[in-house]
């Protein structure tokens, strides 16, 4: 495997035109993902985690203005024609979204939907594509795939539907799989199945994965690197072990502490007061300042902290890195 990233995003910013004026959904992020690796983008709703990925792959809404550089397998997507961007995306990137029901066309058999991408991007014949669909459905663990290839989406359970969506995403043997909250709508035991499936497929196919989620537990299980987003920016990123063992940003620290811990029953949970800032009026300084338990000083309020290294590739965007270790959580 080469060291050059599959997808490399630099200085990506997304501004969405709305009735209330421009909303800054993503305020400049850099991340990249290598073959066979999983990058987890974590954040709460409105943090810009989904939008940064959609914009990077050219799927931002029409009213969005996207700036920055995005390289997919070395090709700068911001410099090619929309048509070529669409083809590159179709050929090299697979998508799995949160709700499998809306990702599937209810009036087409799952076999048709899984084989469609292969016909379009790999030039397979109908017959070959159908055989490939059976193979893919089998790969994602759908029992008796040869029969179920002619079934319709409503004949599948939620977990099975998400497997079909994953089969569709893998149809062109993509170099990159984008999983946008793929397990959020599923039950926890089904989530465990899907997480295991993706990890297994990634291991076998060497696909790079960008996994967008709000669930830190899922991140701990799947990610190699993690980027924590808040108000359109990455506030902390690095190898998953380093970030979870030594979270340095007050926001990451608080998020990790907000989950109920069976060991600390009866105690109140740590909360982050207030709500994230509106994307219509992002503050000039640290966006987390109004809610921050550390509450540094005027510099935090007026000056944007840079991303600074904590150790190795572990970086944090704060003037006051927290010294933590895994034990005091």
């Amino acid at each position: 495997m080469s060291d050059s990233p599959v997808l490399d995003v630099e200085g990506l910013a997304v501004t969405i035109g709305t009735r209330r004026g421009p909303a800054r959904a993503v305020a400049g992020v850099d991340w990249s993902v290598q073959a066979g690796q999983t990058l987890a983008l974590v954040g709460e709703s409105g943090s810009g985690k989904s939008m940064s990925v959609l914009a990077a792959t050219g799927l931002a809404p029409r009213t969005a203005r996207v700036t920055g550089r995005v390289r997919l397998l070395g090709t700068d997507l911001t410099e090619v024609s929309p048509e070529r961007r669409r083809r590159l995306r179709g050929r090299h990137v697979g998508f799995v979204f949160q709700d499998p029901m809306t990702s599937l066309n209810p009036v087409l058999t799952v076999g048709r939907q899984v084989s469609e991408a292969g016909e379009e991007h790999l030039g397979l014949t109908r017959r070959a594509a159908r055989a490939r669909a059976v193979e893919l459905l089998d790969l994602v663990g759908i029992p008796s795939a040869a029969q179920r290839v002619d079934a319709y989406p409503h004949q599948f359970s939620g977990g099975m539907r998400q497997r079909v969506v994953i089969a569709m995403a893998l149809a062109c043997e993509p170099d990159l799989l984008i999983a946008d909250e793929p397990t959020t709508a599923l039950d926890v035991t089904t989530q465990a199945q899907i997480v295991e499936l993706v990890a297994d497929l990634q291991h076998r196919l060497g696909t790079a994965v960008v996994w967008i989620t709000h669930d830190l537990g899922v991140v701990a299980g799947i990610a190699d690197t993690v980027a924590v987003m808040y108000a359109g920016r990455i506030v902390e990123q690095g190898p998953v072990d380093a970030v979870f063992a030594h979270p340095a940003h007050p926001y990451t620290v608080a998020l990790l502490a907000a989950r109920p811990d069976p060991a600390a029953r009866g105690a109140d949970l740590v909360t982050i007061p207030g709500a994230p800032p509106s994307p219509w009026e992002l503050p000039t300084g640290c966006a987390f300042f109004p809610r921050c338990p550390v509450r540094g000083d005027a510099r935090c309020e007026h000056e944007l902290p840079p991303l600074v290294p904590v150790s190795g590739r572990h970086q944090v965007r704060t003037f006051y890195p927290q010294a933590t270790d895994g034990e005091d959580r």
């Binding site: 926890v188 035991t189 989530q191 465990a192 997480v195 669930d215 830190l216 537990g217 899922v218 991140v219 701990a220 299980g221 990610a223 998953v240 072990d241 979870f244 063992a245 990790l256 989950r259 895994g326």
Partner: peptide
Amino acid sequence: AIPVADPQ
């Protein structure tokens, strides 16, 4: 099946 927020 409940994921734990600790990679180790």
